[in-house]
Design a protein around this nucleic acid. Sequence first.
DNA 1: GCGCCAATTTTTACACTGCAAAGATCGCAA
DNA 2: TTGCGATCTTTGCAGTGTAAAAATTGGCGC
Lengths: 207, 207
Amino acid sequence: MVESGTEKPRKTAYHHGDLRATLLRAAEEELDERGIEGFTLRGCAKRAGVSHAAPTHHFGDANGLLTALAAVGFERFLEVQTRVQAEAGADARARHTAAGLGYIRFALENPELFRLMFSSRRADFSDAALQKTAMQSFDALLGSIAALRGVNPREDQPAMLDVLASWALAHGLSDLLLSGRMLTLADMPGETRERTLAEIFTRSLRD
Amino acid sequence: MVESGTEKPRKTAYHHGDLRATLLRAAEEELDERGIEGFTLRGCAKRAGVSHAAPTHHFGDANGLLTALAAVGFERFLEVQTRVQAEAGADARARHTAAGLGYIRFALENPELFRLMFSSRRADFSDAALQKTAMQSFDALLGSIAALRGVNPREDQPAMLDVLASWALAHGLSDLLLSGRMLTLADMPGETRERTLAEIFTRSLRD
DNA sequence: GCGCCAATTTTTACACTGCAAAGATCGCAA
DNA sequence: TTGCGATCTTTGCAGTGTAAAAATTGGCGC
């Protein structure tokens, strides 16, 4: 009520003024600071300045809020992917390597969000919105291999193997780096690590 | 007190008779049934038939119990790895592929334990016992590549790249299969999937 | 302009959780 | 037998998620 004067006017506001978006921002804060293990619905509500039961109406329960947040994560993930591939130029192999490095960079820059998207059971992937954005990310990967091999991986077994292998490689590196299990890589200075990762991706592509 | 007569005598028993081991078994049950997200210390205590504060003395807190359980997981993981490699015969490449398939099979057969070991922040990897067993698993991987390339990966950059790539590939496939994100693979019948996975591992090794 | 409706938010309540502290139990050694 | 220390239970407390009822308020028909 007070801040509705100080902030730019948001959409239609009943009592708060786009509580849904505010809660999503609060949830990401909560996620970043406390991790998925320490994530709390009441903490989100407190950050948003509303009662602890307010989120219910917009997201149902805690997992509902996390599901919506995961969808936001996949949207952002897709943005990063398209951007880094565009920056990599026209060469299909360079674009593919850039995609792999982008995957890892996204994980390192959004560790808890990444864990929510890929390693948690709390986001509900039967949710339509989440399923859609997640699928778009997979399609981007398919497109990258399609450009590289000149075929549609959905109709070409070897190309599909490339897709699965590339994905698993990027994902495995991301997950092991994040969890602190792959110390050999995690302990490298950023510059060296970037070069090592690029080499791993390059070597992984046959031909 | 009652069951100490009916069960085979365990080590030294004050009140219960090896409560520590009983709690570890209960914890794995709890983990399997409720998942890491639903894991509860009180639930473990109930399964073990003791008060909810009993675990404190043996494990400190909930994360302490999970840490000990993760160590058990790595021990079992190492057993599986050595077994499947032994069954694969003498050929270094065959052994390496078997190790990758074993990695994935372990993940699929112990999904929640695997997630605890690799994707959770709840196990404390500064714990000496856990660190030791986890390191042994990594050493086994190093050994596999060492046998394949005839060099010590710790002193050979290309071989170390093989180590990292192989590990990431196996781990990425495991994690994506477990989380239900890689439907292309998850939806295959077991036989086909096994063959596809083997092909992915084979193709991933240069030469 | 006015009053009702429905969307939104708060209040209240409850069962469950992890953890800490104090008390109870019991094997064992002196 | 007695006392000690390891083990386990009881009790208490602050937080948590969720459900249900109550309260607020914008918008719509009139």
